[in-house]
Amino acid sequence: MHELSIATAIVEQAAEIARADGATGVASVTVRVGELAGVVPDALHFAFEVARDGTALSGARLVVERVTARAWCGGCAEEFALGMPPFFWCPRCDRPSQELRGGRELEITDVEAVPAPA
């Protein structure tokens, strides 16, 4: 389960961001996960709960924003969803697409820090 190594990296990066901001902990971390990223969101949630124990994120929640895989058809200038399994043929003009526009994302987009007491 490679989601555990991904969750560990998320915890480490979020803790680093919180420290840099002078926070004592993290309330939540938001990540964008594309359909084609090879990450199972439920497994990532489970792995995150394991990885956060004993860290500044021990009470943090993980918010996963799923990103639909999309491609671009140069023939008819149409962007379309690929579906799962991905199908790279344009539904409008029936030509193959050679440009992926989204769906491989795996990125932290927000870290909600717990401020240090005044």
Rank of each mutant, 00 (worst) to 15 (best):
P115D: 06
G25E: 05
A23I: 12
C90A: 10
R66E: 09
V63H: 07
R66Y: 00
E49K: 08
E99V: 07
W89R: 09
V40E: 14
A116H: 07
A56K: 11
F46M: 12
A47V: 05
T55R: 04
A116N: 02
L57A: 10
Q98M: 08
L82R: 09
E65A: 08
R66K: 13
G25V: 02
F48E: 05
R32S: 09
R101A: 08
F80C: 04
E99C: 00
V33M: 08
L106S: 11
C90S: 06
C93Q: 06
V11Y: 03
I108T: 00
F88P: 10
F46V: 12
V31Q: 06
L62Q: 03
F87W: 13
P91K: 07
T30K: 14
S5K: 14
S97C: 10
L4K: 06
V114C: 10
G74Q: 13
V63M: 04
G54A: 11
P96S: 03
Q13Y: 04
P96V: 03
L36M: 15
A77G: 13
V64C: 03
A27D: 10
G74A: 15
P41R: 02
D94S: 13
T24Q: 15
R104I: 08
C90N: 10
Q98N: 13
P91M: 02
E49D: 15
V63C: 08
E105Y: 02
A20Y: 00
A118D: 11
E12K: 11
S5E: 13
R61C: 07
V50R: 12
D42C: 08
A9M: 13
R19A: 08
A37D: 04
E12D: 13
F88W: 15
V33G: 09
T30Q: 13
W72V: 07
A43I: 07
P85T: 01
A15T: 06
A14Q: 06
E12H: 05
V31K: 05
E105C: 04
W89F: 11
A18P: 04
G25K: 09
A77I: 11
S97Y: 13
S58L: 09
Q13L: 12
F88N: 12
G102I: 10
H2T: 13
Q13C: 01
A7K: 09
R70T: 15
G75I: 00
S58P: 02
A47F: 03
A27H: 08
V64T: 07
V39L: 09
C76V: 05
S28V: 06
V31S: 04
L36R: 13
F80G: 05
R101T: 11
A47P: 01
A20M: 05
Q98L: 10
G22N: 14
A43F: 09
P115G: 09
D21K: 15
V63T: 11
G25I: 01
E99G: 00
A56Q: 12
A18F: 05
A27V: 03
R104C: 04
H45W: 10
E3A: 08
L44D: 02
P86Y: 09
G102D: 15
G25D: 01
V29M: 00
V40D: 14
R70C: 11
A77R: 15
